[in-house]
């Protein structure tokens, strides 16, 4: 969806987007890494299951919710990419805990 601009900052930070290593420049957010990785979408909605991708990039719309380093529902546009960060798609609502609640 996005590409580095010619003469732009050097991409130095390796992150994993859906298991694939992508390098982004310092200052880039996790959502930017997702867009650079070329993912069509970052999540499926909890209501209709439709695909969504980052929309506002400034922490307003919550469309970019993703699983970051194993924690779901993180606002990926507000989280700076860090070396080794694992960013994954999330699907629908978080499953309810199984088993009896005592």
């Amino acid at each position: 969806m996005f590409r580095p601009r010619p003469d732009g900052a050097v991409a130095t930070i390796p992150v994993e987007v859906e298991g694939r290593v992508v390098r982004v420049p310092a200052g880039a957010s996790a959502a930017a890494a997702v867009l650079l990785a070329g993912l069509t979408s970052i999540r499926d909605t909890a209501i209709g299951g439709g695909e969504r991708a980052p929309y506002c990039m400034m922490g307003i719309c919550f469309e970019c919710l993703a699983e970051i380093d194993g924690v779901p529902n993180r606002q990926s546009c507000m989280i700076a990419a860090r070396p080794g960060m694992r960013i994954n798609r999330q699907s629908g609502a978080r499953p309810a805990p199984s088993g009896e609640i005592e």
Binding site: M1, P4, G8, A28, M57
Partner: peptide, 14 residues
Amino acid sequence: GAAQILLKTADLVP
């Protein structure tokens, strides 16, 4: 605005 933020923060263009 999102396109501009990607340019400002990550030097990315569509």
